[in-house]
């Protein structure tokens, strides 16, 4: 972990580094008091060039729970970007004020540009439809806690598998483990892109099945990862309206599911999971939110340690 300076994509992390982060997050959950002052006097800058309340609040809560402080902005209009400042210059300037940066940007690759110009660690908090590594880490922590590990799992991904970056990223992360089986459930128009199938699943020798039927493989699933059809990824509103309600998970669709199935969702949900599912013990999506805060705490600690900012 000592060489890690930034986190742009989850593939920047080795399997061992991910396991270290999960171990730290689990220790934070078990012993929060031990970590309450770890970042005392340190500042996290949350540079959100597009709104994402949940991710920003998660980073802020994570830093506060480590005893640190937070500064930043929540939309491009309240930043110097509105005056035409480049990402590179913003990163150089903010490095003078903060010890670590979490950046969300609508343009793909912007956090990499920031990392190349920053003197403090940069965390990619989402860059367009490209990467969102801390969501993947939150998903991995949730799977580790719910399933006890990552091997021999049958995972169903449902909804927007074309634009859903969390799906691509989680598939990539899980394909490093033995015994993964993937069920891809989507309408024809939102199927997993062939480059993900070829470059990740086929390369790793992962068995996968494509279907349009949500219930067909339900009894076999250990995890069902639901996704929202994201309006912001469509250039054409008609396509969005046609596809947005393709799959809605209701209690009757879970009748044949395993008793220990974990239903996950990166949130926000619109209507793809009925609120009645929230009471079902198999619903894990709010646990994912909480786990997201803990894994971000672990990540902030590791990056600040590797930068020599904290001991």
């Amino acid at each position: 972990m000592s060489e890690l300076r930034h986190l742009i994509d989850v593939s920047d992390l080795t399997v061992n580094e991910i396991e270290e982060l999960i171990a730290t997050a689990n220790d934070i959950i078990a012993n929060p008091g031990k970590y309450a002052e770890k970042c005392h006097g340190k500042k996290l800058a949350t540079l959100f060039f597009e709104p994402s309340t949940r991710t920003r609040l998660s980073f802020e809560a994570a830093m506060y729970e480590l005893g640190g402080n937070v500064l930043g902005f929540s939309e491009a209009q309240s930043s110097s970007a509105a005056k035409g400042e480049s990402v590179a210059d913003t990163a150089k300037v903010v490095s003078c004020y903060a010890d670590i940066i979490a950046m969300r940007h609508p343009k793909e690759g912007a956090p990499l540009v920031a990392a190349q110009n920053s003197t403090v660690p940069v965390i990619n908090a989402g860059d367009g439809g490209h990467f969102h590594p801390t969501q993947t880490l939150a998903d991995l922590l949730t799977i580790a806690r719910e399933k006890g590990g990552f091997e021999n799992l049958t995972v169903g991904f449902c909804g927007d598998l074309k634009f859903g970056r969390t799906v691509h990223s989680l598939i990539s992360a899980l394909s490093r483990y033995k015994g993964l089986r993937v069920i891809l459930i989507s309408p024809e128009e939102l199927k997993l892109p062939s480059y993900v199938k070829n470059d990740i699943l086929k390369k790793a020798g992962v068995e996968y099945i494509q279907t349009t039927d949500l219930e067909e493989y339900m009894p076999e699933l250990d995890i069902l990862y639901m996704t929202r059809v994201q309006k912001e990824r469509f250039f054409n509103e008609e396509d969005y309206l046609r596809l947005k309600d393709s799959y809605i998970l209701t209690p009757d669709r879970l009748v044949n599911a395993k008793a220990d199935l974990s239903v996950m969702h990166p949130l926000p949900r619109v209507n793809e999971i009925s609120v009645e599912i929230d009471k079902d013990p198999r619903a894990c999506y709010f646990k994912q939110v909480l786990n997201g805060k803990y894994i971000r705490m672990a990540l902030i600690l590791k990056l600040l340690q590797s930068a020599g900012t904290i001991g």
Partner: peptide, 13 residues
């Protein structure tokens, strides 16, 4: 040629 790429807006890159 990706219109969502940072190079599409930051000309100096």
């Amino acid at each position: 040629k990706n219109p969502r790429c940072i190079t599409s807006t930051e000309q100096e890159l």
